[in-house]
Design a protein around this nucleic acid. Structure first.
Lengths: 156, 156
DNA sequence: CGTCTTCTTTTGACTGAGTCAAATCAACGG
DNA sequence: CCGTTGATTTGACTCAGTCAAAAGAAGACG
């Protein structure tokens, strides 16, 4: 489940290329990262990779169902490899850290809206906002003035 | 509850100005609109209002708790006047239309994550994705090729 | 009613995230 | 090994939103 990316790509009908393997490698190490961080990290493995190539790779991966794109309000899009299970996210208002929350389909009562207003709902997206453990400590130590903007520390 | 905006603004410690009243008027008519649409619509009432003024007004309104900002993935931010109640949104993948879904606090079982991973959660944001009634009809009439990009029709 | 202070708006330049298209390059099937 | 087809590079571009300085208006005070 870690070096079988060759097969995963091929099975999805995608060619196996250095940029794609690099991006997959980065995503495996960092569960929730933005495109820019991926580009920087991937360049450590494959120096000549361009930012646009990363966008291309990510579009191919999300299109093929190998990666998932999440877009927390107020920050750039993040990507993760966990696909297929309907899980949700905890986002820290302090440092932008994202954690996964399991939420099995069919076991989530409020994921069926009380009044769907005629909509055919096919997905429910849930984002929990709060402070991670570290930021709670940091805030109580330094007082209340030390708000860090969301996104600053994402995956960096 | 409609022409008392003067009071609402003043109570919030904000000055009563033409741009602000125009924006509030637009928001009252269109429940979920993006900044650009607000600017265009507000210009019908107050022609000299600039796009940047709209951003300023919206920042003031959201800061004062008179408006709420929502940011659906893949589209520009939308604004609404419904504040104070914890309601969520249905977004149409076809036309970008947004509808409100009531979800009273304390009555939403899955809004407390099973494993909060040490996070102090203060808000749960839920977005339901699907097709609105109109787009369901439109899709079955015209076949499957007529996907409209999200956001195109928002409030316009 | 007029003046003065302070908050708003305007104007205009700027950033950051992401897209698009043409040309070059590489994967992989034969 | 070669050719086809898909991927990456390069570079220009769009869109949403921010920032800062200057001009303007709201409302308090006399």
């Amino acid at each position: 489940m870690e070096t079988a990316w060759d097969d995963q790509l091929r099975t999805a009908g995608l060619r196996v290329t250095r940029p794609r393997l690099s991006v997959l490698g980065v995503l495996a190490e960092h569960p929730h990262v933005d495109a820019d961080t991926i580009a920087t990290a991937a360049r450590a493995v494959h120096p000549s990779i361009s930012p646009q190539a990363v966008y291309g790779v990510l579009k191919a991966l999300t299109g093929a169902g190998l990666a998932r794109r999440i877009e927390p309000a107020g920050g750039p899009a993040l990507y993760e490899l966990r696909v297929g299970d309907n899980h949700h996210h905890l986002v820290c208002r302090g440092c932008g850290t994202v954690a996964d929350v399991d939420c099995v389909v069919g076991q989530a009562p409020c994921l069926t809206p009380s009044d769907a207003a005629g909509f055919a709902v096919d997905e429910a997206e849930v984002v929990f906002w709060g402070l991670c453990a570290d930021c709670q400590v940091r805030r109580s130590q330094h007082g209340y003035g030390s708000n860090t903007a969301i996104g600053e520390g994402v995956g960096a």
